[in-house]
Amino acid sequence: MKKTLVLTAMASLMGSSAFAAGELNIFNWGNYTSPELIEKFEQTYDVKVTITDYDSNTTALTKIEAGGHGFDIVVPTHSYVPVFIEKGLLMETRPDQMENFNNMDPNWVNVDWDPGRHYTVPWQWGSTGIGVNTTVYGGNVNTSAIFLDPPAELQGKVNVVPEMADIMALAVYYVGGTDGCTDDMEILKKARDVLMNAKQHWLSMDYGTTDKLSSGEWVASVNWNGSNFRARLANPDVVYGYPIEGYPLWMDSVGVLADAKNVENAKLFQNFIMDPENAAMISAFARYSNGITGSDAYMPEDMKTAPEINPPAELAAAGKFAPACPKPVQDIHTAIWTELQK
């Protein structure tokens, strides 16, 4: 009690504009939330924060739909934000009317998955590309051919992460599709054929890319840019390729759940992470970009020049955001995926 009083006094002395004591329960991807950020939030607002991990959008969706979860905040990928909204699981907290909203990068305001930002705030965004160890292969890495038609040096040594949506999108783009959720059977058939043919050259389909690429156990793998960044910091030979044929972009977004118990704290959190200094903490931890202008000033020096964060213009253009595919397309993807892993 005494401690609370002291903290309350301190908080009011600091002149914090909004104040709410209590709890906040965050449901986020594993190994993704900066502990420093949480500590700062707890101290600023005298809120006890609890973080629970999940490993996929469907897991998060299923648990939240089941009810009784007790979470206030969830961080779905952009493709799942409309699903959450459509099912009435997110609260319209109007981040666009919050104090720190003017810090949001204008590019991320009118997005397809949340036009005008009535529900969500960007957490981090990134790309799915390819990590290659240059001591084994010195050629062009900016192509999906690294895993879909591997050069001789990499045959039998490529890892492919078992992320169906990402891999299907990469394969569809590689064979000339422009829409990751295309229902064009010609394209899907070509995508299947190229995947089936490539599989013989793969070593494994597994996660753990950061560790295994940096240790040299894997010399090439489909990978996410932030993960590759961390791998390169540990092993400078690991470079990141942006497939010129097209590659998926994604943005994880912070939303408040419709049945949240600590709504005010959750809103405070949404506002809190739009502060450039706080957004920089998120990025400094997981090594992905955030969507907040001015956060660069607070980022570690190596983030500003990292090739994983700053793609050259012609490669940046090949990145695409795709929605969650409609059920019929999804079923085709699953059928191809099953055949691939049989």
Binding site: T58, A165, K327, Q330, T334, W337, T338
Partner: peptide, 11 residues
């Protein structure tokens, strides 16, 4: 295979 159906396969 069962896990796939409950996870990414959404079936």
């Amino acid at each position: 295979f069962i896990e796939l159906q409950f996870g990414a396969g959404r079936n």
